[in-house]
Amino acid sequence: MSGLGVDYPFVLLFLVLALAPFARSALRPSSISSLTAAPPDLLSRVLDSGLTTCGVIAIAASLLGASRPFLAGAEIERIGEGAQIAILIDRSGSMNETFAGKTPAGGEESKTAASKTILRRFVDDRHHDIIGVAAFSTQPMLVTPLSDHLAATKAAIDAIDRPGLDYTNIGRGLAMALAMVKAGEADRSRAVLLVSDGAGVIDPKLQDDLRADLAKMNVNLYWLFLRTAGSPSIYDRPEGDDTPQAAPERHLDLFFKSLNTPYRAFEAESPEATQEALRQIDRLERRPVRYFEKEPRTEMSAAFILLGLFAACLLLAAKFAEIRLVPGKAKP
């Protein structure tokens, strides 16, 4: 949509002041007793209406310039790549360790520090996305709602390498992420990106709720599993009992697979693998979406100010051209 607009509409109310030149003249009064004393003169009349017009234009253009008029940029429909992504980040204490399961020392990077840089880059590459961030440990927390404000999303990602909290309550976190993307626009593709270094047991009632929620929505689920060296992979069968308590990661993966939802898991054991996984997600989440891009608006203040200046200069010239009417010497 394009159109004219002003930033300060109340200034336009004063545009009536621009009618003043019709009522009075800016020029010096002359002591001539009657206008009929001078013969009608086309040039004078043209000059007179010209000066009046100049006055009207000068006042009106100054005020219009002051109201900051603009021509709104047209919204152009484009086909691009984009999605609504809820990034769900595990903030349990173990995320602050390195991939080797140690406290970072020297040049080592913790899992959160590594994912921070990589997630930042991921967000940077996705200009047309609507991204929100949620965190979870014992409880889920909404950090920033879905928005296209990249700066806010990045500020939320910057905060993830601070000391984490206690546990990994993945079920509630997922419920929150789903609620976030559910509230977004319906015609965009939706994705939940879960970044965690472990899994917990989701209680059966919550599992049913999640299943029901996911069945109603069209969401792509990605799990970026930051695997600590030596810990079980999501594909390993435990040696003893194969229960969710013994192998929560494997069972979370099985739960995700049992859903009728597009799902992919990425197991990353190093910062490089994490980056590769995110690159793949980036590629997968590039389906065409329609979006509207606003062209920058055209400011018109300067043009009006220039017009006002021009008209005022003409008036000034007229003012400088004023002469005193001196009666000629009476002819004998």
Binding site: D7, Y8, V11, F14, L17, A18, A20, P21, A23, R24, S25, A26, G55, A58, I59, S62, L63, L64, G65, A66, S67, R68, S301, A302, F304, I305, G308, A312, L315
Partner: peptide, 19 residues
């Protein structure tokens, strides 16, 4: 942005010129 204040002030002066 100085234009709103300067423009408005100029408008007022120009109006005063006639009034």
């Amino acid at each position: 942005d100085l234009r709103p204040s300067l423009g408005a002030a100029a408008g007022v002066l120009l109006f005063a010129l006639y009034a």
